[in-house]
Design a protein around this nucleic acid. Structure first.
Lengths: 322, 322
DNA sequence: CCACGGCCGGAAATATTTTTCAGAGGTGAT
DNA sequence: ATCACCTCTGAAAAATATTTCCGGCCGTGG
């Protein structure tokens, strides 16, 4: 963490011997960029006409001026380079170069300042850039909500059950089905026996095979998807440890769940179907499950992860090709 | 110079003699300052050792580097001025001068909006609550990075292509396969003809059927998954509009892509495989694609979405039961 | 009317950035 | 193992940008 403010001069280049003359090192008044506009006003009366023109231009459009070289700014204001440099000095910078840097900073701050629209709903005529910002913002919000609402005790219990399981069956349909597969893929990678069912009938026949110590996980946003509830019920009846990942902790699915992990429900709209944020939420939960299991079984999980990575590298196109 | 990809090999099949196809180049993608750190991570793998050192220094201490001249930064990183300039170019700036300006802006932003959330890596002995917090934070970061680095021009072009497509094929393997399926599911819901292939052979045979106006999308984090590149190449050669969603904009896959959408690459560790954050990033990108298409085809998409929602309600357990 | 003093811009001097170029080091093929 | 080739790298030249210097201009006061 070396955030130490360096002096402006870097002193590179000029040999050690000569050092003909060096500007005064003391940063007279290294002004915070934000204060620049005020400083211009304060100092304006003490400026000559030409310098005022320069200062005015700088205060009016920091971003624009930051893109200009001394020559450019001199031309723009109808003055000379020398005047521009003098103005920069008067404003407290060692030279124009440093003024320009400060200007860039100011511009960036102003830029970041105005983006209050991201909380609004996505409209049909939003420009594409705004859609990106809003979607990202919403998903971030969903993540924060989910993390805050997640019951770590339930999560810990679920991790424990998974770690000890002889075998794990996962049920999910539609969008939740992809989450189920993702979890299964991950668990397989660390050497656990996991399987995500997408066929409800086969899921039930698989559930019949489960017994005490095994784990069944149902993933359903609505909490009432019968195709998912049914296999979980069967697993429950056969003595398996059952886990429900759902947005409705009061839904039917929790009836057959030993542990319930709640996903958060963000607002939705026509342009933002529920599937979008529920998926984000569900994925965070399964990532937590996965990471928890990996921690507990680190001795075996780490080599397994490394091995699966290794195996995949060979499926890639050789590097040279381009 | 501009690293423009050379003209591509014409398809062996039906040499149509058309003008060589060119990927939409968003050439000097002047990146928003905030995206810089993410961009460094994304591009790091394609950098040479010396350039990596420079990029690392820049990402680690933007404020400090902004105070350095090209010579100073070269000395600091133990490289040469030429390398520094090359790095600046790779990061999307015309030269070091502009990188420095962006750095100053970034520093100013960091200064104002202080980010005290220490993002330590996940440790084996972290309590479960901390795992949840760190995972959520990391994914939020990934979303922010992705959104900041996403090229809206490419995105817009991709949306346009999708909107007009007679049919859309999507290729993805492993974790990316799930993302592919998610996109396909979504597009189907708004009435588009989309299909996510998981069998590479079938994907190729499907790609042969594509023609001008159709769209093929390849999703691969590494950018060099041959099982995914191959069908995209075939689609490309048959005249389909091709889109690559990848974390390596310099990877082989982009050779055959008309539009490239870059996903961000978060740092990874043993407890946090790359698959985790790349998936988050990919999902945001496809959500943006989907939302963009929905906007453009609102007249037909909205009723379709409502209808699919309706249809699913009947798959649920009756409310009374519990 | 002339001398004075500060402001101003042109141009030289200096610093910085960019480009060029050739050697170093590595890679893959034979 | 050797060789050809290709990329990376830094030194130095070339191009730009910045700073300094200097002398002219203009208003003011003697």
């Amino acid at each position: 963490m070396n955030e130490v403010k360096e002096s402006f001069r870097e002193g590179g280049g000029d040999g050690d011997g000569a050092a003909p003359r060096r500007r005064t090192e003391t940063a007279a008044a290294a002004p915070a960029p934000a204060a620049l506009t005020a400083k211009v006003r304060t100092l304006a009366p003490s400026m000559t006409r030409s310098m005022q023109r320069v200062a005015e231009a700088v205060a009016a459009d920091p971003a624009g001026c930051a893109a200009l070289t001394v020559t450019g700014l001199a031309e723009l204001t109808g003055t000379s380079e020398a005047t521009v440099v003098r103005t920069a000095r008067l404003l407290g910078y060692p030279g124009y170069r440093d003024l320009r840097l400060a200007l860039a900073g100011l511009a960036a701050q102003q830029q970041s300042g105005r983006s209050p629209a991201v909380t609004a709903d996505i409209a049909v005529d939003d420009p594409i850039a705004e859609v990106v910002a809003k979607l990202a913002h919403d998903e971030q919000q969903t993540l924060a909500d989910t993390a805050a609402a997640l019951d770590t005790v339930q999560l810990g219990a679920a991790v424990t059950a998974l770690t000890a399981a002889r075998r794990t069956d996962i049920y999910g349909i539609g969008a939740s089905g992809l989450v189920a597969q993702d979890l299964a893929q991950k668990l397989l990678r660390i050497g656990l026996v996991a399987h995500a069912h997408h066929d409800p009938h086969l899921a039930v026949t698989g559930a019949v095979q489960l017994r005490a110590g095994d784990v069944a996980i149902a993933i359903t946003h609505s909490g009432s998807t019968s195709d998912v509830i049914e296999p979980l019920r069967v697993a429950f009846d056969h003595g398996a440890t059952t886990i429900a990942i759902t947005g409705r902790p009061d839904g039917p699915v929790t009836q057959y769940a030993d542990h319930v992990l709640t996903t958060s429900t963000a607002r939705e709209s026509e342009l933002r179907p529920a599937a979008m944020s529920s998926r984000t939420s569900q994925l965070l939960v399964i990532d937590c499950l996965f990471t928890g299991v990996t921690q507990r079984t680190y001795e075996t999980a780490a080599p397994a992860l490394a091995a699966s990575y290794e195996a995949l590298v060979h499926r890639r196109v050789p590097r040279g090709l381009r």
